[in-house]
Design a protein around this nucleic acid. Structure first.
Lengths: 157, 157
DNA sequence: TTATTATATTTAACATGTTAAAGATATCGG
DNA sequence: CCGATATCTTTAACATGTTAAATATAATAA
């Protein structure tokens, strides 16, 4: 395979180059994630919430009162981001924030009726989109994919 | 499985809730990606470049001169982010930027010797990390994963 | 109890993600 | 050639990612 491009820089050997970008795991994960989110984002935008804000209120609806650390774990959001998201959600009246009486360091979060209202509006749509995705990709294959992703995420622990 | 948590909010039916966060495809993709990047980030940080900057100079080393649009495609970086990354990389002397004579709208990018030097320092390390990952996860399974991710990313086109 | 250490959250600073709109240049039809 | 339209890039504004450091509170050991 000769290279006719006149602009190709002279890297000593291609062997020194990293594996081809097209088969890069980080980029592939990014692309896949973005493709999935493309289906969900317009729906969230209609309710004027971001993906991360949705994750937070959804976890509160699932789990009740949750402190910030547990939220960061479950929603996979870094603490500094979570601080800002909490501030924003509280200002909008979608969640409440309270200091833990047993541990003054902790911040306890709860969803408000207004937050629940959004959940109840968005959740059916969300389910529908996910079910469509499942049909097109195959439920078993999604499960298989989730298993592999989980294993990849925990490979170093 | 009874719920003893006194703080659980009264969502009408759990059926209304979205699927459990633990099996959320977007979050699973995020986690997996983050786990992979955790291996690479320290190495990039030592050379004072971000993951995205690395993707850009790496693609230039692979492909030679590339215009901004193609770069955005290949590195999977949105145009506004790319504008900032290009500015930063140019200021640091790792790439050059020139207007396309045949199409004044386009910006042509090339890697500089300084950029190539970083490639040549980082690439072997990068390969090593990737090979370790391959060994632990299995090359076939990574290929299988890449195939599934690619299919997921192109499911709507 | 007190000094030390650990943990939880926030702040700061900078980079990138995201959407919308603006600016610049090409292209196309009349 | 001209004006409308399309394409490429940048700017703007806000949200989040990322790392390091600061702050506040708990837990622990001397």
């Amino acid at each position: 395979m000769t290279d006719h491009s006149p602009s190709r820089p002279k890297v000593q050997q291609d062997a020194l180059l990293p594996r081809n970008t097209r088969r890069s795991l980080p980029i592939a994960l990014l692309r896949a994630r973005e493709a999935v989110m493309t289906h969900f984002r317009p729906m969230l935008a209609e309710h004027d919430i971001t993906e991360q804000q949705w994750r937070v209120i959804r976890i509160l609806a699932e789990a009740g009162t949750v402190d910030a650390s547990e939220m960061a774990d479950r929603a996979f959001i870094l603490a500094p981001s979570l601080t800002r998201i909490i501030r924003s959600l509280e200002e909008r009246g979608l969640i409440t924030k309270a200091k833990d009486d047993n541990d003054g360091r902790r911040v306890l979060l709860q969803i408000t009726p207004a937050g629940l209202a959004i959940i109840n509006e968005v959740a059916p749509e969300s389910r529908l989109i996910y079910e469509t995705l499942e049909k097109r990709f195959g439920r078993e294959r999604i499960d298989q994919l989730l298993d592999m992703l989980d294993e990849l995420a925990t490979i170093h622990d």
